[in-house]
């Protein structure tokens, strides 16, 4: 064991310690987290619905309205990230502000701002995709694979 007296081997100790750690490890307040994720996530989507309804009222189809709707939400998320509010929201709302498209925008704006000090090319330009990059990569690959399957079997 760590307090090494040769009684236990390293692996045994690690196994024993992991079990001991699990006993005292604090659990996240799941009910509270889920409540705030539901409320904040729901409200962001409701705001999306309000914006979408407005664009539809301007004569756009539901499909055409999707792009401008996400653009407005992304703009708002970028603004509130810049003002230093979005990270405070995220601390409370968790997935409620991460999972909506506004969270995706936050994941682009936050590193872009943070790494401005390393310049506009290797800082802002490169780091802004540190989280959004994987999302776009695996989203597109999924779309291409499903597209290939659809094209082959249609």
């Amino acid at each position: 064991m760590s307090v090494s007296d040769g009684r236990q081997g390293q692996e045994e100790f690690q196994k024993w310690y992991q079990a001991r750690f699990n006993q005292v490890k604090p659990k996240p307040p799941i009910l509270k987290n889920v409540f705030w994720a539901f409320v904040v996530g729901g409200l962001i989507c409701t705001l999306g619905q309000v914006i979408q309804t407005y664009f539809i009222s301007l004569g756009l189809s539901q499909k055409e309205a999707a792009g401008p709707t996400s653009a407005v939400l992304i703009f708002l998320a970028a603004l509130f990230t810049g003002l230093g509010v979005y990270d405070e929201l995220g601390r409370k709302a968790g997935a409620g502000s991460i999972v909506p498209i506004t969270g995706f925008a936050n994941s682009i704006v936050a590193p872009a701002m943070e790494y401005k000090r390393e310049g506009y090319v290797f800082g802002v330009g490169a780091k802004m995709f540190v989280i959004a990059g994987p999302v776009i990569v695996y989203g597109l690959v999924t779309a291409v694979l499903i597209g290939l399957a659809y094209w082959s079997f249609r």
């Binding site: 979005y86 990270d87 929201l89 601390r91 709302a93 936050n106 994941s107 590193p111 943070e114």
Partner: peptide, 17 residues
């Protein structure tokens, strides 16, 4: 934070640990 975890303005939740 920026070196070990996330950019400071990223809206992530800190676990109780």
């Amino acid at each position: 934070e920026r070196q070990y975890r996330y950019p400071t303005e990223l809206g992530v939740q800190r676990p109780p640990l």
